[in-house]
Write a protein that binds this DNA or RNA. Structure first.
Lengths: 142, 142
DNA sequence: CAGGATCCAATTTGATACTG
DNA sequence: CAGTATCAAATTGGATCCTG
C-alpha cells in the first residue's frame, strides 16, 4: 500500500498499468492518513518554528513568543497544545507566583527534527530556482 | 540567521540568553520565508500526493485523478498548476483529438522526493505513538 | 505570567455545472 | 479529455478583551 492509498480494494477490472509505484514506492505500509496528519501539523504556520526553537533549550511561554516573531498569544497557545497532545513537547508548570510554564521537546519531538530540517534545507537550497520558475511562468502569461 | 528569523536587527539591549540556537542551528543562511513557502506547498492537501504519484512514471490528468482517491477535478488542476509554476512538474500537451496532457516530475521535483519521503516515513513510523499520546491526552481531560 | 473566550477576516477546499 | 467558472462550506489565523 502506498501514499494516498486509502486501502480501498480494487473491485473493477483495471487496465491501468500498475507500474506506477513499482520499485519507487518507499512507503509500502504507509497510511496516507498518517502522512497527511503529520504533514498538516508540520506544515502549518507555527509548529515547525516552535520545534526548532525548542531544539536548543527549553523555554517558557513568553520566551518562546519573543523568539518567534509574529506569533500571536492565541496561536502560540494553540500550537503548543497540539504539539503537547501529539507527544512532541512537554509542558511543565512550576508552582510559583507568578506562574512559570516551561516547554521542552520530547524524545519523539527531537526525532522529528532531522527529517524536517532536511526538508527545510531543501527549501532553502532550491528556493532561488523556484522563484525563477515562478517569475518565468508568470511572465509567460502576461 | 535561523529559521523563523526575519532578519530584523536587534535594536534594543537584549538580556535574553542567545544560546538558544548556538550549536543547534542547522539552517544558518535559512530564509524563514522560503521554508514556510515550501512547507505550505508540500504540506497542503494534495501536492505531495501528486509528487509521489508521479515518481514512478509520467501520467495524464485522468490517470492522476484515478490514482489519487478523493481529489476533485478542481483541486487536482489547481495543485498541478502550482507545481508547474514552481518548476516541480512539467505539463505536456499532445496535439491530438481528444486532447492528451501528460504530467511529469522535473529534475528539481525529483530532488524533493527524498526529503519529503523521509518525513513521510517518519510520519508512518511514529504515528502509533502520536495516536497513543493523543488518546492519553484526551483521556486526562475527560 | 500564561492563558481562555469571543468575534471576525482570510484562506482553502469541495460540489456542481459548463466548454473547446 | 482536460479543463474553467461559480458558489458554498470548512478550516485557519488574528485582534481584542478578560482572568487565576
Amino acid at each position: 500500500m502506498c501514499l494516498g492509498d486509502r486501502g480501498d480494494t480494487m473491485t473493477t477490472a483495471d487496465t491501468t498499468p500498475r507500474s506506477v509505484y513499482e520499485g519507487t514506492c518507499q512507503t509500502h505500509e504507509a497510511d496516507g492518513a498518517a502522512i497527511r496528519d503529520v504533514l498538516n501539523r508540520v506544515g502549518d504556520k507555527w509548529s515547525l518554528l516552535v520545534i526548532v526553537t525548542l531544539a536548543g533549550t527549553r523555554l517558557r511561554f513568553s520566551e518562546l513568543q519573543r523568539h518567534i516573531p509574529g506569533v500571536s498569544q492565541r496561536m502560540l497557545t494553540l500550537t503548543l497544545r497540539q504539539l503537547e497532545r501529539d507527544g512532541l513537547v512537554t509542558r511543565t508548570i512550576h508552582a510559583e507566583v507568578p506562574p512559570r510554564v516551561e516547554y521542552d521537546l520530547t524524545v519523539v519531538g527531537r526525532t522529528l527534527l532531522e527529517p524536517s530540517m532536511a526538508l527545510a534545507n531543501w527549501a532553502v537550497e532550491h528556493y532561488p530556482e523556484i522563484q525563477d520558475s515562478r517569475a518565468a511562468f508568470d511572465r509567460s502569461r502576461a
